[in-house]
Simulated scan of single mutants.
Amino acid sequence: MSWQNYVDQQLMGSGLVAKAVIAGHDGTLWAKSNNIEPTREELVKLSSSFSDQANLAMSGVHIGGEKFFYLSGTDKVIRCKKGKSGMHSMKTLQTILVAVFEEPIQHPQVASVVESLGDYLISMSY
């Protein structure tokens, strides 16, 4: 399956995700939905933030030119909110998965979709 198919079928195809991105840890864009334009700098900063999330509470997370407010995270997951939308991001062995969602969708619903795909990619050494 191509990276674009993962975005189109697994993330966007869930009906829960409004915008999606798959990128490498180095900020290289692997696939995305048509309605988001993340910069390499945004993706690199997000990727490096998984190991140290202390600054995210002050700076937030920028993706596709939008600023999301940091809610919580682990070394694998970052959760953010912006008004009536949110963002759930997961770091795998080689990728960063980003899913933006809008109300009435809630974080746990999107977390299930993103983390299932992330766990699958980890099992495939990605």
Rank of each mutant, 00 (worst) to 15 (best):
M1E: 10
M1V: 11
W3V: 13
W3T: 11
W3E: 01
W3A: 15
Q4A: 04
Q4H: 01
Q4K: 13
Y6L: 15
Y6R: 06
V7D: 00
V7K: 07
V7Y: 03
D8Q: 10
D8V: 14
Q9P: 00
Q10A: 13
Q10D: 05
Q10V: 13
L11W: 05
L11P: 00
M12Y: 01
M12T: 07
L16R: 13
L16Q: 06
K19T: 10
K19Q: 15
A20D: 03
I22G: 06
A23E: 07
H25W: 09
G27T: 13
T28K: 11
L29M: 15
W30L: 15
A31S: 12
A31V: 06
K32S: 09
S33Y: 05
I36H: 04
I36V: 05
P38K: 05
T39A: 11
T39D: 08
T39E: 00
T39K: 12
R40Y: 11
E41Y: 05
E41V: 12
E42K: 04
L43F: 12
S47W: 02
S48C: 06
S48Q: 12
S49H: 06
S49I: 05
S49M: 09
S49E: 09
F50Q: 07
F50G: 01
F50H: 02
S51V: 10
D52K: 05
D52R: 11
Q53M: 09
A54R: 14
N55A: 15
M58H: 03
M58D: 08
V61Q: 08
H62Q: 14
I63M: 13
G64E: 12
G65C: 02
F68G: 05
F68D: 01
F68V: 12
L71F: 03
S72V: 02
S72C: 09
G73M: 02
G73Y: 06
G73I: 02
D75N: 12
K76I: 07
K76Y: 10
I78L: 07
C80W: 04
K81F: 01
G83V: 01
S85V: 00
S85Q: 15
G86Y: 10
M87W: 05
M87Y: 00
H88D: 07
S89P: 04
M90L: 07
M90R: 11
M90I: 04
K91E: 14
T95V: 10
T95F: 15
V98P: 07
V98A: 10
V98S: 14
V98N: 03
A99M: 10
A99K: 06
V100C: 12
V100G: 11
F101E: 10
F101T: 10
F101S: 11
E102H: 04
I105K: 15
I105W: 05
Q106K: 15
H107N: 00
Q109I: 11
Q109L: 11
V110G: 05
V110Q: 03
V110R: 04
S112A: 10
S112C: 08
S112W: 07
S112R: 14
V113L: 09
V114C: 07
E115F: 05
S116R: 13
D119M: 02
Y120E: 14
L121P: 06
I122W: 03
I122E: 08
S123T: 08
M124T: 12
M124Q: 15
Y126L: 15
